[in-house]
């Protein structure tokens, strides 16, 4: 049978773990698709993705471990598209890391475009071996503006695969969690 002192310690530990669990269950923020009337889609390995792929539960899946995958994309704007410019970036905390920019006088006022993008090209952006490219889910944020209007939007992209960084982060979280519990050790007075 447990002594009252030991029972108190167990109760405190359960309380601490309860607080931690409630923090972990913080819901992800709600994301918005694309504002401004622009439309677009991308086909990766036979699956068509679009502006609705803007949540963690419904991301654009990029199979980074497969070779030779090509993304076929197309996009349209509902306004005059002369003197257009745009940018696309990865959201990292309060910052957005720019990964692509474009701009064109577009005197012909072409309102749509299409093309293809090799995933190999994307992998080459990283100065590390493929196994060390950080996997997981990323929020992409972009905008396109022209004389006739402006569109902004976000989508969610998941780099699929089993990288080694994920395991390292879990080990790091576990070690620092146990260390943090050590802060609750009463000092000898």
């Amino acid at each position: 049978m447990k002594s009252p002192k030991r029972r108190r310690r167990s109760t405190r530990l359960v309380l601490v773990l309860g607080v931690m669990a409630s923090v972990l269950m913080l819901p992800a923020t709600a994301m918005a698709g694309i504002d401004g009337g622009c439309t677009g889609s991308v086909v990766i390995e036979g699956t068509t993705y679009g502006p609705n792929n803007d949540t963690v539960g419904n991301p654009i899946v990029v199979p980074i471990e497969k070779d030779g995958v090509v993304a076929i994309w197309e996009g349209k704007v509902p306004f005059d598209n002369e003197n257009n410019q745009g940018e696309l970036g990865i959201v990292v905390g309060p910052f957005t890391i720019n990964i692509a920019t474009w701009g064109d006088a577009n005197t012909a006022n072409k309102q749509g475009n299409s093309g293809s993008y090799s995933i190999e090209e994307f992998k080459d952006l990283f100065p590390v071996p493929e196994s060390l490219i950080p996997r997981g889910v990323y929020q992409l944020s972009g905008e396109h503006s022209a004389d006739g209007g402006r569109c902004t939007g976000t989508v969610m992209v998941k780099l699929e695969g089993s990288g080694s960084i994920g395991i390292a982060t879990v080990v790091g979280a576990a070690i620092t969690f146990v260390t943090m519990l050590g802060a609750g050790l009463r000092r000898k007075s």
């Binding site: 992800a28 905390g93 969610m156």
Partner: peptide
């Protein structure tokens, strides 16, 4: 340790596709 735990947790949640690296 609390600061590092929070950082590792944010990275782990991102790596396993649970939450992106938002603010």
């Amino acid at each position: 340790s609390g600061l590092l735990f929070g950082l590792f947790l944010a990275l782990a949640l991102q790596q396993f596709g649970i939450m992106p690296l938002t603010t």
